[in-house]
Each structure stands twice: as C-alpha cells, then as structure tokens.
Amino acid sequence: MEALLTCEGLRRSFGKLTAVDGVSFQVGQGETYGLLGPNGAGKTTSISMIAGLLQADAGEVHIAGERMTPRANGAKQHVGLVPQDLALYPDLTARENLDFFARLYGLDRDRRTQRIDQILEVIGLTDRQKDRAGTYSGGMKRRLNIGIGMLHEPRLLILDEPTVGVDPQSRNAILESVENLATDGMSVLYTTHYMEEAERLCDRIGIIDQGLLVAEGTRRELIATIGEQDLVRLKITGDVTAAATACDQVEGVSSSDAEDDQVVCLVDQAASRLPALLSAVASADASVAGVEVKEPDLEDVFLHLTGRALRD
C-alpha cells in the first residue's frame, strides 16, 4: 500500500521531558491507523507535529510527498484535524463555523456552499444549521467538530481522541462516521486510549507509551506478540505482590504481574496450569477469591509490553 503519511524518527521535548522519542510509522492511502496509548503517552504531541502545529526537534513528517512543518501550507491542505477539545466558535452557527474554516482553506464560493451542505447532512445538523453552536448538545458539538475537519476533503483526517467525554449514543455515531470515512478512501489517523475503539476501527495499530512506539501491526499481529497464550486473572486476598512472584515460578507461566487486587498471568494451556497456580498463591500465604481465563486482547498486549495497564 502506498504511504500517504510517513513519520521518521519524530522527537519532541518540553524542557527536560521528552514527550515523543523517535516515533516512526506510516499510514497508507485509505488506511485507518490507530495510535493507542494511555494519557500522557505522547499521542497528542505526535499528531501536533504531524498536523504542523508543532515543530519537531528531530525527525520528519511527509504527507503526500510534501514535508510538513508549521509553515508548510501546501502539506497542511492535505490534512484535516479534529482536536481532542471542541474546536468551534459557540457564538457562530454551525453553518457560520463551517463557512469560516472553508474560507481559511480557500474553497471557492460554489464549492464552499456544496461542501457545507454535504457536511451538514453527514453530521445531521441540517435542521439546526442556523442555531448557534453554543446551544447544541455535547454530541452535536462533537459531530460539528468532526465535520469541520472533513470540510475541505483532506487526504488525511487526524482525530485526536474524538470520543472522550461523549455519551454512548454519540460515541457510536462518531465511530460509524469514521468507519464510513475509511470506506470513502480517506486515510485516518486515530488516537485513543480505548482499546475497543482501536480494535473496531483501525486496520493497523501503533502502541505508544512514554513517547516510544513500542509495537505496531494489525490486531492479530499485535496479539501474536504475546504468543498463543491465555490470560489468567486471579483475584487475591492477601499479599498480591507475593502471590504474583509465586505464580511467576509456575511452569508454563511467561509473565505474572500484580495489578490492584489481582495477579495477571500469561499462561500456556491455562486449564491444565490452574491447580499449580492456586497452589503457588497458597504458598505465598494468600488465597484466591476469583478466577478469570480469557484470550488476550490489545489491553493485554499493552500490559505485556509495558508492564502497565492501558488506563493507568
């Protein structure tokens, strides 16, 4: 697949804090790529450099062959940005908001009118287009926020955690919109800390933590990195850390981590190893209050790769 977006060795520091440290990845034409990581992992800083909001300390971004910098107006024409926070003027109507940004992107009068009508239809605000955005519900504002990003038909749409603080109904509508965009051939770069959103929307996923891209691939490829293992969660009464250490000694257990009041183990053939795990917990003067066995998901991949939960 031909790459529309190429990031090479992106690095950015704020004082002594290195927010992004050598991130490299590509997004293909028509591909939906997810940047998955907890809050503070470096997702927003990465997309700020990709969208031309921030100058990278090192590394380069190319979009459709053009190098992106804060002054690269040509490259910026290819990008639509949907910031994490609502980015619209509450005292302007939906139509006025769209019209202002359409003018900024240089759409001529006929094209502007056509695109605004289309977008209002897509985001379901045709009937409320003359109302001020400040009077909209949270979900309507979110939809308008996304509509502004799509207005000038960018080749790459960047959505920065677009469902944060959104009710379930609006969230579903947003996810459906993003799925439709991919169907229309637009490339999408989607950042989230919701594993299920990344799994549902993204063709490929980059896992980012503490400024580093620690893994990348399809969902299947990422899960394969932790092998054909089951995830066993033991709810512990007693010393969780000692129990996790004891479980780590059991044959067939490749990792064992204490997480709140649980021990989380990656185990070959979990069913046959459970008695040994229960014995190990007992040997650590703890007891098992509950057991859960499941196939690993991206949450478990993240835990496996970083030793921390995605929502930490």
Partner: peptide, 15 residues
C-alpha cells in the same frame, strides 16, 4: 482557551 487555536494553526495560513 476555547480550543480553536489548534485548528487555526493546522489550517494553511501563517502564524
């Protein structure tokens, strides 16, 4: 403060 600055900065206009 109202969140529109990133969108302005991302548009093909200069600071």
């Amino acid at each position: 403060q109202q969140g529109t600055l990133p969108r302005l900065l991302a548009a093909p206009i200069s600071l």
